[in-house]
Design a protein around this nucleic acid. Structure first.
Lengths: 148, 148
DNA sequence: TATAATTAGATTGTGCACAACTTAATTGCC
DNA sequence: GGCAATTAAGTTGTGCACAATCTAATTATA
């Protein structure tokens, strides 16, 4: 079972292309906000919880400092966020929204609606798909923990 | 509905992290074959259909020449494939397996088994998940075509 | 209380992923 | 047949994604 080497029968391939194609859908929607897809994810976290430290941010997005450091640098250049060193622990860096970064949230509110409109998907299906993806991740993590 | 801006409620985020985490699972499995994940996908296509041209390969994987050209260059350097210009149309480039690239298939046969073992997933669930991912792509493409 | 181990973040190097552009071959159309 | 439009690959530039390494701050412990 599942041992066929055919491209289309690999769940990895379906997941990989689905992710790429969905990201492609976001590009024109995010362009007016001056954000890439990954930058948008960082902003989503900040709108939810301002003044988060980079460590937590990386854990939320499963991104390491090698990815996050230059990404955050670009968000600072655009002027949406700023870095503040934590006073209690000088190693930590807190990320906070600038007024322009906060203001952007209003425009971003429309993004999920546009996307689900484009996907043309009903609530029940949407939820089922979300659960599937979360389950795949749970299985991956269960394996990771088994290995430790 | 679906208008919450919370990270975890975005299907894009779940798809993006699931794909990244699954790819991460493949890395140690593919390392002994001397392949990255994307290179593995190219090899899958070649084992299925040798002597394919780059255009078709790119369509199969939804990758453009900007990604594929350097990727193929690396596969040639490793010695798994070679490029041959098509005689009937000098623009086309055909990709074919070297003996070492063909031989690799035997080792690769074990990859899907290892992965489904790690995912610890039964056949029915696996198939259901595949169908969901294919459906997501179909919806994305349906939108793309509507826009043309 | 020195110093070893750990931790947070940054840097470097490799490999995608894709847009925009270039080059060369082919096809269409007159 | 001649020339514009199209097509296939390749190149360049930007931005992830991640491993490996480095630096500086903190914590643990001998």
């Amino acid at each position: 079972m599942k041992s066929s080497l055919t491209l289309e029968h690999q769940i990895c391939f379906q997941l990989y292309t689905a992710s790429k194609e969905l990201t492609r859908l976001y590009r024109p929607i995010l362009a007016p906000l001056n954000l890439t897809y990954s930058q948008y994810l960082v902003m989503l976290v900040l709108w939810e919880e301002d003044n988060i430290d980079l460590k937590q941010l990386g854990e939320r997005l499963t991104l390491d400092s090698g990815t996050l450091s230059p990404l955050v640098k670009r968000l600072i250049q655009i002027g949406y966020v700023e870095k503040v060193r934590a006073t209690d622990d000088e190693r930590r860096v807190l990320l906070s929204l600038t007024p322009s970064g906060s203001a952007l949230r209003k425009q971003a509110e429309e993004v999920p609606l546009k996307v689900s409109g484009m996907l043309n998907i009903d609530e029940a299906t949407y939820v089922a798909y979300m659960e599937m993806l979360i389950d795949i991740k749970a299985r991956l993590r269960a394996f990771g923990e088994r290995e430790e």
